[in-house]
């Protein structure tokens, strides 16, 4: 009898979990129907990435299953498939992280490559339709393009890391999975909290152990406390945690985070990935007040922008890990995938 009750209870939990998941999926389908889910799962999407990168290194797109209307951008610029990095890539690197969204038919790959023998970091987004590549979006971080670290593309740092933080690869227990909308909304709090950051927001969306890696380098301390010493008066520091950096109010110089496109919403792993731009207007926003009343002048002295792909691991409504690849680009640049109005808007889209 006791065993029977246990079986019934287990079945009920399973059904409940399945119901939650199914309900979540139905909501997702209602929000963005996509016919490819059944035809191209995560493994299928990843194969497209490998096939694409092998073709890039061979400088030969002719064998790729490309849609007739395929669109390709590199660093925000529309190019013919076969141009740009296609002509200069010489090998694949060792760092590989695939982020799949079969519902949207999209995959984003963070990895390392070689260009004329030099290590570069790559972001690749493919959109697959009817088992053909419909969209190709890339960011190639090359030596000299990142002025804050002119000799560092991040690739060597990524390869030292070996791969993404294992947390990114862990599945969220089915009962704890959230909808695509909720996943995007949580990740978007990061952008909203950083834009014109004043230190006064509710930053409880950061998990206590949140940490961030940018272009292969640790950008936060693992804990949301100062590890040692004190922060400089006018700059946040990598010695702070995710939340402490935001609470400092010192990221005010990021004046606009725009064109927030959430292109991967992986509810199974709790991973959201957005392409976006961080603008630094560098005008009168350089002078601001921190929460403790200090007047600070900080940040870039001329207008420029980061072109960014940023991944978030979200668990229980909190951000635990952040992983970003980015490079400098002209101020106000468009992604090549948005209207001018959407490209300038700070509204998130998915």
């Amino acid at each position: 009898m006791r065993r029977k009750i246990t079986v019934i209870a287990t079945a009920a939990v399973f059904l409940l979990a399945a119901g939650i998941e199914e309900s979540s999926r139905l909501r997702t389908f209602a929000a963005k129907p996509n016919a490819v889910e059944a035809s191209c799962d995560g493994a299928c999407l990843n194969r497209f990435v490998d096939q694409y990168l092998d073709a890039v290194v061979a400088h030969d797109p002719s064998g790729l299953p490309l849609k007739k209307t395929v669109k390709f951008t590199e660093d925000g610029q529309r190019l013919d498939v076969g141009d740009g990095f296609w002509r200069t890539a010489t090998a694949r690197g060792t760092y590989k992280y695939y982020m799949d969204d079969p519902v949207a038919g999209q995959v984003v790959f963070f990895g390392t490559m070689r260009e004329a023998g030099n290590p570069v970091s790559l972001v690749l987004r493919l959109k697959i339709e009817e088992k053909q590549i419909a969209e190709i979006e890339t960011i190639v971080v090359r030596t000299g393009m990142n002025s804050s670290r002119p000799a560092d593309t991040g690739a060597e740092s990524f390869e030292k890391l070996g791969g993404p933080d294992p947390l990114f690869l862990e599945e969220i227990p089915p009962a704890e999975r959230v909808s695509r909308d909720e996943l995007a909304r949580t990740a978007n709090k990061y952008f909203s909290g950083m834009q014109l950051n004043d230190g006064k927001g509710d930053y409880s969306f950061f998990a206590d152990d949140c940490s961030r890696i940018e272009n292969g380098q640790q950008a936060t301390q693992g804990r949301n406390t100062m590890a040692s010493g004190s922060a400089p008066a006018n700059s946040y520091t990598v010695m702070q945690g995710c939340r402490a950096q935001f609470q400092s109010g010192l990221i005010h110089f990021v004046t606009r985070i725009r064109d927030r496109r959430f292109v991967v919403l992986d509810t199974v792993h709790g991973v959201a990935l957005a392409f976006t731009f961080f603008d630094h207007a560098a005008g009168n926003t350089r002078t601001f007040q921190t929460p403790d009343g200090k007047t600070v002048t900080a940040g870039p002295t001329n207008p420029w922008t980061w072109e960014i792909a940023e991944a978030f691991k979200v668990e229980n409504g909190k951000i635990r890990r952040i992983l970003a690849i980015f490079q400098r680009c002209p101020y106000g640049m468009n992604s090549g995938w948005s209207s001018w109005e959407d490209g300038m808007s700070d509204k998130a889209r998915w």
């Binding site: 207007a281 001329n302 207008p303 002209p330 101020y331 106000g332 468009n334 300038m344």
Partner: peptide, 13 residues
């Protein structure tokens, strides 16, 4: 090369 709102970019700095 980037279309901006007049007042943005160098106008602000």
């Amino acid at each position: 090369g980037v279309p901006l709102q007049l007042g943005d970019g160098l106008w602000a700095t």
